[in-house]
Design a protein around this nucleic acid. Structure first.
Lengths: 241, 241
DNA sequence: CTCCGACGTCCGCGTTTCGTAAGGAGCGAA
DNA sequence: TTCGCTCCTTACGAAACGCGGACGTCGGAG
């Protein structure tokens, strides 16, 4: 890797490819993004952009619409042909058509010239936040599992899990309260919101959840049974066979 | 209530902090801005500016680059340390370097001396307008969809969509809040503005919107159903069949 | 006035999910 | 080992849910 990585606490926030033929603009933008904690790559024309992208696939592209040789739209199109990548377009002020065209081609946002670098950085962060569910909202994660309460999605090693409501809530509760053992009554109260009911309901749902979450549902590692007590979500403390 | 607040019907259009060591300039600028309907705060040096800003955080700062004691750039930098605020720089004529420097620090615009107060006011309005894009007048897009809230137009892959009012608002809301799951009650509140009502209304409108927006309405990819919860607009980045 | 689009409501239908029951397996103690 | 209790697994009926189609109303355009 190259330079930067400011101590801002964010670490490497992502790789951004800046494509602009105006050295001044490129310099300013790159400087800003660098100071904001991004690893910045630069290109001054279409082919160059594609080459850089091939070498180091960026997390986001800041793309000037007016480019010598290859149109910015064309660059965007080709980039998209290689893989999904967020794009922010730099367009001339007041050129509504260009903006719409850019968005239709697949740009995720646009900034009109002249622009303030501050605004650009804000948009970069906004787009990245939107494109990467891993960051941003208060997400729960442990042992390859991720649970996004806002989006109501859960993944296991990157692949999405098809959980029902109860399963989702149950998993979310476990992730929020790791390492502690909970009786069936507790779970029934916390997850179901009931003060009484058939406790076997909990048992069955735990089993169903295990079937979707555990690598080997027959020998659960995440949702462990605490004999005579209930269950406990353990973030893979130690391996035992 | 404090001073000014012109009766122009617009009320307080925003608070502007004018920082200039030349009393004449400051007086003229402040006068014009006040007459334009802004609440104007003044400071004649860097520390003073920071103090005023701390007392009443401005919506915009008009900042002289040449300041006794603390450099205008430094003031801008420190201001930015406290929070994001648009800045218009006053620079000496023809000083290209200063302009670049100003932009690097994060100025949103610059005006070269000598300037006409009228122009400054115009720029203030322009920057403020630009700095508040979240107010709903910004273009939205995702997955080949384009929504222009200002023009009330929406396109899909370049072709215009014939959306009704409700459908448009619904789509706009989804585009503004991608990746999150919303219950029918939430949508009813956010899009319809109702606190109660038949939730099937939401269901039906989602279906109608799907019919116009989805490639295969029977198998929606954009507006996904979150079973038992509601709906979620997903950009669907990276998923292939 | 009539026609037409938009909107809200309602009603079946197919599907998914839930809760419960019942039998079998596992665990610990005597 | 055997016994007693707990947990697992499976199955199934019922309820909940979402979907599509259709209807009646309202208001604006012709």
């Amino acid at each position: 890797m190259q330079q930067s990585n400011r101590a801002g606490g964010a670490g490497a926030r992502g790789r951004v490819l800046v494509v602009d033929d105006d050295p001044t603009v490129a310099e300013v933008v790159a400087g800003y993004l660098d100071r904001a904690g991004y690893v910045v790559d630069r290109a001054d024309d279409g082919p160059g952009a594609l080459t850089r992208a091939a070498a180091h696939w960026p997390d986001l592209v800041v793309l000037d619409l007016m480019l010598p040789g290859m149109d910015g739209l064309e660059v965007c199109r080709r980039m998209r042909g290689h893989g999904p990548v967020p794009v922010i377009m730099l367009t001339a002020r007041g050129d509504e058509d260009d903006r719409i065209l850019g968005l239709e081609v697949g740009a995720d946002d646009y900034v009109t010239k002249p622009f303030s670098p501050r605004e650009l950085v804000l948009r970069v962060e906004s787009v990245l936040r939107r494109a990467r569910p891993e960051a941003g909202t208060r997400m729960l994660s442990a042992a390859g599992l991720t649970v996004d309460p806002a989006a109501r999605r859960a993944t296991k090693n990157g692949t999405e899990l098809a959980l029902t409501i109860r399963e989702f809530d149950l998993l979310a509760f476990f992730l929020r309260n790791q390492g502690r053992a909970y009786g069936r009554e507790d779970l029934m109260r916390e997850v179901w919101g009931w003060d009484f009911g058939d406790l076997s309901t909990v048992t069955v749902h735990v089993r169903r959840l295990r079937g979707k979450v555990e690598d080997d549902p027959a020998r659960p590692r995440l949702i462990q049974t605490v004999w005579g007590v209930g269950y406990r979500f353990e973030t893979d403390a130690g391996e035992e066979d």
